[in-house]
Simulated assay, not measured.
Amino acid sequence: MKRLWDISPPLHTRSPVFPGDTPYSQVWGATIGPGCPVNVSQITTSPHAGAHADAPLHYAQGAPTIGEVDLAPFLGPCRVIHAIDVGALVRPEHLAHAQADLPPRVLVRTCTQAVVDRWVDDFSAFAPETLEWLADRGVRLVGIDTASVDPAASKTLDAHQVLRRRDLRVLENLVLDEVPEGDYELIALPLKLMEADASPVRAVLRELP
């Protein structure tokens, strides 16, 4: 069987979310016992907790929800590019070494070890021109191993606006710690949430033949 890399962080009550967003919580509506044959839980969470796909609605009023977007960008050939510890913004020169014959999906590893248990403000994000550069090369989906494609303090969300204008899909909060630079098959389908601005994904990479 082809090797799989699970690039999703664990999702539980300790999962970090953007300050002020809704953290993951879970309660039990039913538990196995006399008169009850099943366990049934109820979860409350931001759709941006853990590995997730943003919908255009997240950054553009009246834009498509995550349940309305085409699934094709979330499944298929993908390249993982390392740009580890390059600073606040990933720029085109940090990715240029791996630009030959880019597939339609690019995931960027910026961390030696992804932070999955607490919120941090000083993560790496994409410079807007980097997303333009990738879109010019035929990329349809971008991913990053941090909480956002924009810096935490950004109020203009310049990188998200490039996603909107160039019709790019995006994955955030990935874990690429164990993934060598190279080409894979990406499988990271969002849920068909017809009114939501994002969706959790179980993102995996599969070894190519």
Score class of each variant (00 low, 15 high):
1 M>E: 11
5 W>Q: 03
12 H>M: 01
13 T>L: 02
14 R>W: 04
15 S>H: 07
16 P>R: 09
17 V>M: 04
21 D>M: 09
24 Y>I: 03
24 Y>S: 07
26 Q>C: 14
27 V>N: 00
30 A>L: 15
31 T>P: 00
35 G>K: 09
37 P>W: 07
37 P>T: 11
39 N>V: 04
44 T>S: 13
44 T>K: 12
47 P>A: 11
48 H>M: 15
49 A>T: 13
57 L>A: 15
58 H>M: 15
58 H>E: 12
61 Q>L: 13
64 P>T: 09
71 L>S: 12
72 A>I: 02
73 P>Y: 03
76 G>A: 10
76 G>T: 03
81 I>T: 01
83 A>L: 05
88 A>T: 12
92 P>L: 06
95 L>D: 05
100 A>V: 13
101 D>A: 15
106 V>Q: 04
108 V>W: 06
111 C>D: 15
114 A>M: 06
115 V>S: 11
116 V>N: 05
117 D>E: 12
118 R>T: 11
120 V>D: 02
121 D>L: 09
127 A>P: 03
130 T>Q: 01
132 E>N: 12
133 W>S: 09
137 R>S: 08
137 R>M: 05
140 R>T: 11
149 V>H: 02
155 K>A: 12
162 V>Q: 10
163 L>W: 06
163 L>A: 10
163 L>I: 12
168 L>N: 07
169 R>T: 08
173 N>Q: 13
176 L>C: 10
177 D>N: 11
177 D>M: 07
178 E>S: 14
184 Y>N: 06
187 I>G: 01
188 A>I: 08
188 A>S: 10
191 L>V: 06
192 K>I: 04
192 K>Y: 00
193 L>E: 14
193 L>S: 08
195 E>S: 14
196 A>I: 03
197 D>Q: 12
199 S>T: 04
199 S>F: 01
202 R>Q: 13
202 R>C: 06
203 A>R: 06
204 V>I: 13
206 R>K: 12
209 P>V: 05
209 P>M: 00
